[in-house]
Computed example of a mutant assay.
Amino acid sequence: MAINILGITDAVMSHAMASGRFETVNGHEPMNAPSTGGLTAAVWTDRVTPVGRASGLDSVTAVLILNVRVFASAVSQPPDAIDPDMVAAVDDLCAAYCGDFTLGGLVKNVDIFGMHGQPLDVRAGYIQQDGMPFRVLTISLPAVVNDLWEEVA
């Protein structure tokens, strides 16, 4: 079996698009500053880690961690609305990922509580891109993928 990365990324992106909170949703980490005045979301792979406790004798289960980053201009007006708008969007996304626990049957489950390492997590910060400041909230979205690689003696 192989990671259905396109299907999983599409499922994660579709939740962001369905929320109606984003002007743009990208399936990659942007190399350029978002061009919209509203919220932008981007989804990309962070890492893939085998999980010994969940693997069998002949196949490997792994955790695929995706980053889902929400961007807003750090100079948006009014400044007091930036975080509340972003937190509301992230709240919708986390609720969707918990509610669609298997991402439409593409993964075993979203590892909400980090039973296999990284839990569902949201971190805030600022980044500079193309000389422009952005407020970001980044969701670490761990998805457990069963029977990913075959172990052969």
Results as ranks from 00 to 15, higher is better:
residue 87 V to W: 04
residue 29 E to D: 07
residue 71 F to L: 10
residue 76 S to W: 09
residue 68 V to W: 00
residue 27 G to I: 11
residue 38 G to Q: 07
residue 145 V to I: 10
residue 150 E to R: 11
residue 103 L to G: 02
residue 42 A to Y: 02
residue 49 T to P: 05
residue 69 R to S: 01
residue 56 G to N: 04
residue 26 N to E: 08
residue 21 R to S: 10
residue 137 L to R: 11
residue 53 R to F: 11
residue 8 I to E: 09
residue 84 P to F: 06
residue 87 V to S: 13
residue 117 G to W: 00
residue 144 V to W: 00
residue 62 A to V: 05
residue 32 N to L: 15
residue 117 G to T: 07
residue 19 S to Q: 14
residue 42 A to K: 03
residue 18 A to F: 13
residue 116 H to L: 05
residue 54 A to Y: 01
residue 50 P to V: 14
residue 136 V to I: 13
residue 134 F to D: 02
residue 57 L to T: 15
residue 44 W to Q: 06
residue 1 M to R: 07
residue 68 V to G: 02
residue 92 D to C: 13
residue 46 D to E: 15
residue 53 R to T: 14
residue 116 H to R: 07
residue 121 D to G: 10
residue 134 F to H: 00
residue 64 L to D: 01
residue 60 V to L: 06
residue 143 A to Q: 08
residue 41 A to E: 11
residue 139 I to R: 01
residue 21 R to L: 06
residue 148 L to N: 07
residue 140 S to L: 06
residue 3 I to T: 14
residue 15 H to N: 04
residue 110 V to T: 01
residue 15 H to L: 11
residue 16 A to H: 06
residue 121 D to Q: 09
residue 29 E to T: 08
residue 15 H to Y: 03
residue 57 L to Q: 13
residue 134 F to K: 01
residue 3 I to L: 07
residue 107 V to W: 00
residue 120 L to R: 09
residue 141 L to C: 02
residue 128 Q to T: 03
residue 87 V to H: 09
residue 57 L to V: 14
residue 131 G to E: 02
residue 110 V to R: 03
residue 63 V to M: 06
residue 81 A to Y: 07
residue 119 P to W: 03
residue 96 A to R: 07
residue 87 V to M: 13
residue 122 V to N: 02
residue 48 V to C: 10
residue 125 G to Q: 03
residue 43 V to K: 04
residue 73 S to N: 15
residue 104 G to E: 04
residue 137 L to F: 07
residue 2 A to R: 13
residue 113 F to I: 09
residue 148 L to W: 06
residue 64 L to M: 08
residue 87 V to F: 11
residue 130 D to H: 02
residue 71 F to T: 10
residue 137 L to Q: 06
residue 125 G to P: 04
residue 5 I to Y: 03
residue 123 R to I: 11
residue 116 H to G: 01
residue 92 D to Y: 11
residue 74 A to R: 13
residue 7 G to P: 05
residue 41 A to K: 03
residue 22 F to L: 10
residue 135 R to V: 04
residue 40 T to L: 00
